[in-house]
Design a protein around this nucleic acid. Structure first.
Length: 216
DNA sequence: CACATGATCGCCT
DNA sequence: GGCGATCATGTGG
């Protein structure tokens, strides 16, 4: 049977509320810190993109840290360098975007300094008020809704004019931790508690992952 | 609700 | 040549 494309309209890009533009912008040093800390601090931040003169954005509610050469789940495991992953070795604050399963994109924010190869995967976000609740609930959906593709791999989030990250202000969200999703091939690293999500968000990609879902 | 399946292609071995 | 840092749909309980 022929498969229907997504039921969401293909070109929806989330318009950023003008009031959120008053938040403070993350500078280079924010991204150069410890990758796991950055992954935590990205919960509640707004990723914004300028497209044809207007700003669009979403509030990040779920992330995963990928720890480079020591992390069997990371594309840079063992210090591997290929053309695809080269942006992951850029200075903190750049985008690393790749295609999975031949049809979905995954967006990451590079952390630490040039040559290290660590990053944070953006797994889910909430659109501005009025957007469908689960429009950005998953890494592929997030990229689709914001119009992010592999062509954006290597883009700079700091002072580029086309991208911006606004840090959360005010109340701290309740942040929960779990193992990462979809990395069962990664040996011991599959258990590492490197997934962070806003407990109260309706837009997280999956509910809490149980450690022992099916005891014998 | 909980699975199971197929789509689809760039990348790396 | 094999396989994903996924998702939408379909089945059955």
């Amino acid at each position: 049977m022929p498969r229907q494309q997504s039921s969401y309209s293909p070109d929806v890009r989330m318009r950023l509320d003008s009031e959120t533009l008053g938040l403070r912008e993350a500078g280079r040093e924010f991204y150069r810190r410890d990758t796991t800390l950055v992954a935590r601090d990205l919960i509640g931040a707004w990723l914004a993109r300028r497209y044809r003169g207007a700003w669009y954005g979403a509030r990040i509610v779920e992330t995963e840290a990928y720890l480079g050469s020591i992390d069997a789940a990371a594309h840079t495991y063992g210090g591997r360098r290929t053309p695809r992953v080269e942006p992951m070795y850029m200075d903190g604050g750049h985008l690393y975007v790749f295609l999975v399963y031949g049809m979905h994109h995954c967006a990451n924010i590079v952390t630490r300094s040039e040559g290290i190869g660590e990053a944070v995967l953006l797994r889910a976000a909430e659109g501005p008020a009025g957007a469908p609740a689960r429009l950005l609930a998953g890494p592929g959906r997030l990229c689709k809704a914001l119009g992010i593709t592999a062509a954006h791999s290597g883009a700079d989030l700091v002072a580029s004019g086309a991208w911006c990250l606004f840090l959360r202000s005010g109340g701290q969200p309740q942040i929960a931790v779990s193992a990462r999703i979809g990395v069962d091939y990664a040996g011991a690293a599959r258990e590492w508690p490197l997934r962070f999500f806003d407990k109260d968000s309706p837009a997280i990609s999956r509910p809490v992952i149980l450690r022992n879902p099916r005891p014998a």
